[in-house]
Every structure is written in C-alpha cells, then in structure tokens.
Design a protein around this nucleic acid. Structure first.
Lengths: 229, 229
DNA sequence: CCTCAATCGCTACAAAAATATCGAAATACT
DNA sequence: AGTATTTCGATATTTTTGTAGCGATTGAGG
C-alpha cells in the first residue's frame, strides 16, 4: 500500500466535502479545475492528489463524482467502520460522542470510559460509559485498536500508556500533552494549540506589521553583557 | 514582521508545552538537543524554529527556559489577550467556553451567540450568551476581530458571511464546511476530518498492507470499456 | 591556565512539495 | 467530417522544508 503524503491526506476530506454537496445537487461530473477554484488549492495539485487515490478522469468531462467519492473514501478507509473507545467523558468527550459525522467517516465509538464513578453505567448519546478499570479487559476482548483521548492534560500520558498496554494501536489525542510512547504506536494530535498558533500569528503579521524584529546579537558576549545591565 | 512557516508555527506550541513542564520542575535551562529528543523533531529543525522566534542561546548551556517561553509566547501573540466572539453554543461551543486553557493562549471569549432564543441571556461558564441579531452591533461596538465558528455545518457559510460583514478579520472554523470568503479574511480550519483522515490512512497503511493498489489504466478507451461491461 | 566536551548558529546540501509546461484524448461546434 | 476547446495526466522546474556538517563560543576539570 503506497504511502500518501500527509498534506494530501489533509486535503482529501476537503474535496470530499465539496463532492457530497455536488452529489446532492444532482451533479454528475466535476473537473479538477473547478475543485481547485473552490478549495484554493492549485489545479495541478488537485490532479496529483486525485491521482494518488487511483481514479482516472475523462478529458473534457472531468471526473465522475460518484467514482471520486468512492475512491477517496476507500483511500481514507472511511468505507468500513472501525471501532474505537473514548476515554474522558467530559464536555469535549461528550460532544464527540454526539457527533454523528464521525460514523460517516468510518469511526464508530462503541464505548466511553471515565475515572469518575458517577458516570459509569450511564448512557451518553446512546453510548455506554464504563469505569476505567474495565478498559483493558474490554479492549482486548473486543479487539478495539483506536483510542480517543479526551482526558485532562495531566492524565494524558498515563491514560495513553494504559491504552497501549491494552492493545490500542492508534491514539487520537485531543489533549495538549505530548505523548511519549513506543514508536510503532500511531499518534495523531488534534491540537487546538497548533491551530490557534497559526491564527494568532497570521493575524498579528497582517495587522500589527510595525514593531521591528529584534536584532539578533551574533556573539554570546553581547548577550551576557546585556543581561548584566 | 517576518512570516513564519506554518509548520514551524504548529511546532512552537509543542515546545512550549514541554517548557511549561520544565519550568514547574524548577529547571533553569534546556538544550535544543533535549527538546528534539522529546518531540521527535530533528535537532537542527528545533534550532531553526527557535531561531525564528528571535532568541539566542548559550553554548554548552542551552537556552534559558524563561527567555524561551517569553519569546515563543510573544511570537505567537499569546502574551496579550485578544477578544473573540463564539457563535454556536452547542456542545462543542460550550466546551470551548469552559476551556480555560484558551485564556492562557491569548484568546479571550467575551461572549457567545446562538440562534436558539432559549439560550439567549443565559450564562455558560460565566460567559454571557446573546441572540444572533445582536452580533453585528456588538461586534462593531466592541471592536472584536476574531470569530469562533461552532455552528452546524449547513449554517457555517451564512454565519461566516455575517461575521465578515460585522468586522471580523479572522475566523477559527470548527465546522467541516469550506468557507468561501474574501481572500483577505484569515480562516483557520480546526478540522477533525483532516486529522481523522491521517489517522485512518496511517492505520490502514500499517496493518492492512495487502490489498494491491488498483492498476491505473493509462488510456481512456480502456476506462470506458470497463464501464460498459 | 589550558585542554576537552558540549552546544550554538551559520551555510551548504538533500528531499519533498507546490507550481508550471506540455502533449494526448475526448466532446462540442462549425 | 474536421477543427477548436477543454481537460486529463505526465514530466520538468521552482520553491519550500528538512537534514547534515562546520567553525565558534562557552563552562568544566585537570
């Protein structure tokens, strides 16, 4: 199975979003050129991305929308549902449990877990919540390989280690913690900080363009001298 | 103001996260080499990233943690709070309102808005919720420039347009919709789909390595013929 | 006081990604 | 039917990003 570049993977869902829209409008075909206009991605880039999913288009016509959706979905493995466990049923965790979109994207959260005994046994959006001590056993028995981490940051590392011991192979990390795990575990950070960082910086680059950059001192002596003053 | 590469911007919060930890442990200095080990980023890359923030380190010692934190935070504009409005007080929106971390990262959500009249006037985590029709006026009067978009996907485009008309310059988009707005508006997508796509694909690349890739047909005739069958 | 080891930051190099260019194929229009 | 136009997909070029290597600088230890 060929390895698809990360940046391409991140663009594919964008195309897909547009394609769903066109499909509902009853459209039949779409050109790479048009997709490029709508996403802001360069048209040759769109072609490359599409090529990686393995579909071929028809000159003058474009691509059949149905084929394209099919191809991207199967490329992202969104066609068949993967089971996942979610740990940390706080507000963020709860909102994920109620986010039906995930099922359409191949992720089926079949149970939630929380260290708070009060929530154990309850249902959140139809999903059963267990106490933490059941995690390892259920995980092994049900052969679940995806873990969703929505605990407070200070419990993230410990929880992640428990997940790995219990047979989890991929962790979707919603905490700001940097997980230190075995190399072979797939960790995907859904980090708000990273996104916010880009937003913040771009905003200040654009609208606070004065404030000259600090002159970098080239020699260490100067640095020390400055500090002593 | 120099433009910092996106990928660097996304790594900076990671370093910061580690630095906060070291600071609490009472550590005074840190080397780029050590940061590299912990983040998995190559050590020369860490040095480049750090250089972009404008600090200089001391050979043999490394960087003063306090200086480094200071420098990264001011680089990301996390030192002074920017005001923001949040639209869409559903579960996701609510969880953001209660996420105190954001204030530490320079984002101050000063009000929420929702089209549901039932929630108007209530407080969610101490933040007042208004009805949508107040948005434009308040936004202009309070000179708020950042909008957080947590409405259902089908209302995303319309809401975003309202934001822009009201003077919003940057939108943090939590919906899966692709916003079509004026080029000069900064849009940062906090897209779960993109993240999930990477996770899904990486998992199948690793553990379902069979299933040979479809052979791409190089000529269009073949394609048509196949379809006719 | 002098050598050694560690770290910094600069410059050059390599890899990857994005963009431009080109020929081939297919529909639509004359 | 023939030509023009659109779109595909492959190849090249440019740009961006990541990696490696080097000399310079500092603190520690003999």
């Amino acid at each position: 199975m060929i390895s698809i570049p990360v940046l391409t993977l991140k663009r594919l869902p964008q195309y897909l979003e547009l394609l769903y829209g066109f499909e509902q409008e009853g459209q039949d075909t779409i050109s790479a050129t048009r997709l490029a206009e709508l996403t802001g991605v360069h048209m040759t880039q769109v072609r490359k991305d599409i090529a990686l999913t393995g579909v071929v288009g028809i000159p003058k016509v474009g691509h059949k929308i149905k084929d394209l959706i099919e191809s991207i979905e199967s490329c992202l493995n969104w066609k068949d549902l993967s089971s996942a466990f979610l740990v940390g049923v706080g507000r963020l965790g709860s909102s994920l449990l109620g986010y039906s979109e995930l099922k359409r994207k191949g992720l089926n959260i079949i149970a939630g877990f929380d260290s708070d005994p009060a929530v154990a046994g309850t249902l959140v959006d139809g999903v059963i919540i267990h106490s933490m001590d059941k995690f390892a056993d259920l995980c092994r028995r049900m052969k679940v390989h995806i873990g969703i981490l929505t605990v407070p940051a200070d419990q993230a590392q410990a929880t992640a280690e428990l997940m790995v011991e219990s047979g989890i192979l991929a962790i979707w990390n919603f905490t700001s913690a940097l997980l230190q795990l075995d190399e072979k575990i797939i960790v995907e950070d859904m980090d708000m900080s990273a996104s916010l960082a880009v937003l913040s910086r771009r905003l200040s680059e654009k609208y606070e363009s004065d404030s000259e950059p600090k002159r970098k001192t080239k020699n260490y002596k100067n640095k020390i001298d400055q500090e002593k003053q």
